[in-house]
Design a protein around this nucleic acid. Structure first.
Lengths: 336, 336
DNA sequence: GTGAAAGCGCTAACAC
DNA sequence: GTGTTAGCGCTTTCAC
């Protein structure tokens, strides 16, 4: 009892005109008489006609779609990115098809395969966040001939858009050094992930030759819980400053300290990274490094559209980061 | 200079066999000789063949896709829902195509149109969160003949899956009444949105005939900032308990109080709703009502798959909610 | 075991 | 202005 879907042919038959005319009319071709055009549109509406995208794409060899794979969607960073990009691509006349790899190289590979199979006209590739990246996916992408931009991390042979994480971290550390701390603790994650390695290395570089005791912890994961566990181990010997690899970790640290009656920033300063929603909704707003996702999205969309026009375009984009100073590093004035 | 994409015909020519055979071989049809099958697969791989989904869907009249529209993706509630559903539908052999309406009825309408045009086999409809819902979209959905389940809210004529918000709120209020408060403040949002109306009404109902001073505020929006602004206005006359329409608002309130040196729960108790990540990462973990998104996703996927099988299925699903008690309503023992 | 042929719904020359 | 025709890439009877 499946209701047959109405096609262009049904409309044609209904008003005794050819399929071609209906197609032209529906696409607003001025060659067809206004009267016929109207009649076609009316009966299309009356019959509840909805064009079949699959047929359309097949014949046009144009999908009007660009695809994106992101590692997670519950991570606010990627969620914002997806929304921004979805708007930007819409402005450019494309719709964005969203795939979630769940940080699983296998799923990522399938997502990319599916996009290619769907003949997307461009791909925004945000690789999984794992130490070993999957060369298979990259090869597939590179071999597909489909314009691809890699975001947030660097992939050899692809045009990349990312924020200047090193610069951001260095600016942050310079700022912190003005506080004359005697010790700084860095809470990072597993080694081998581009975005985390950048931050850690820049932290270390910035501290070169400075007379500050520093310690770097590699936690199993860069999340709230792991950060809290780490913080718990240092309660008896607090550093002056704790630099976290992202805002969510910093929030964990701040909350743990609050629970233990340790004041941020007076007893210990804490910084985040990303300038996500957590840095603002932290009980003590966080000093952090802003990654401007809005600008990233704009530049990515521009670049991709440009590449769709001209596949030979080679361009890497690096967006500046910005130091955002908030309460978590500003001791209260004693007088005031 | 566009690299021509390889088709089934190229493979056929390459090894001197018909297109039909290639197609059969690629789909693992046992009718074709194992040897040929292997040769086809090998050359397909060698040539970098990727099947054209559009052609495939056109001829099969099956897309293997179900679509979902959600109002926002940065809202953790929807993000979790999308991820859960994406996994559940994958288990069921479908891929999930994600659309974001940005709470804009116009965009929602276009998203639904696009899904129908793409011939998705099922639709998960999470309507925009606005007071006036758009009947156009609902009519389109209803008229499409595509199995649709509406989530999180009720739509006349559709199978709906939602949590028992009323029950959750009533349980919450009963629990709070045991604390013998003399006054309770409810912070809600604009009227006319299903999910918010449910909570507010259930709150009021639960307080019927109880000797508690209660006040209900309708804020312009159910977010962090609005909640903080509201909280600021009551500093001089604190109620015993503040019930918020969601966790994010409750977090705003908790943080504002922390800043002003007001203790939660000792000076005032605060509750959230949803049991999102915010309720756990709040400096004072929040008592809240859990909406079990995992179960919602499972039941929605089940129902939708069932409907794809049999379009006549009529079923509404209501998932029980659960009261989660945390520190924000548990005064510290004075002795201990 | 494999090929020929028809057709999915739509568009775009090219006729008339 | 409108109709005829061919074809996008794939699947699937039905012959052979």
């Amino acid at each position: 009892m499946t209701k047959r879907v109405v096609t262009i042919r049904d409309i044609a038959r209904e008003i005794g005109v050819s399929e071609a005319t209906v197609s032209l009319a529906l696409n607003g071709n001025p060659a067809v008489k206004a009267e016929t055009r109207q009649k076609v549109k009316d009966t299309a509406a009356a019959l509840g006609y909805v064009p079949n995208t699959n047929a359309r794409r097949l014949v046009l060899k144009r999908s009007g779609v660009v695809g994106i794979v992101v590692p997670e969607i519950e991570n606010i960073y990627y969620a914002v990115l997806v929304r921004e990009l979805s708007e930007r691509m819409a402005d450019g006349g494309y719709s964005l098809s969203i795939f979630i790899s769940s940080n699983d190289p296998e799923k990522e590979y399938r997502a990319v395969s599916d996009m290619i199979a769907a003949r997307v006209e461009g791909i925004i590739y945000v690789p999984v966040n794992t130490a070993l990246s999957d060369q298979r996916t990259k090869n597939l992408l590179l071999g597909s001939g489909i314009p691809t931009v890699c975001m947030s991390t660097v992939t050899e042979g692809m045009n990349c858009v990312l924020c200047d994480l090193e610069g951001g971290m260095k600016t942050l550390v310079s700022y912190l050094l003005e506080k004359q701390p005697s010790s700084i603790l860095y809470l990072g994650g597993p080694q081998g992930m581009y975005t985390l390695d950048c931050r850690r290395q820049a932290f270390l570089d910035a501290l070169q030759q400075k007379h500050v005791r520093s310690d770097v912890r590699a936690l199993p994961s860069v999340n709230y819980t792991c950060a809290q566990e780490a913080a718990r181990t240092i309660l008896s010997d607090l550093p002056d400053i704790i630099v976290c690899a992202n805002d969510f970790m910093a929030l964990g640290v701040v909350n743990l300290f609050a629970e233990r009656g340790i004041s941020v920033p007076n007893d210990v300063m804490v910084t985040g990274f990303d300038d996500s929603i957590f840095s603002v909704t932290s009980p003590v707003p966080l000093t952090t490094v802003r990654q401007d996702l809005h600008t990233m999205a704009i530049r990515t969309a521009e670049l991709l559209l440009h590449m769709i026009d001209d596949p030979n375009v080679r361009e890497d984009v690096r967006i500046p980061t910005e130091l955002i100073i908030r309460k978590s590093t500003q001791k209260k004035e004693i007088d005031a």
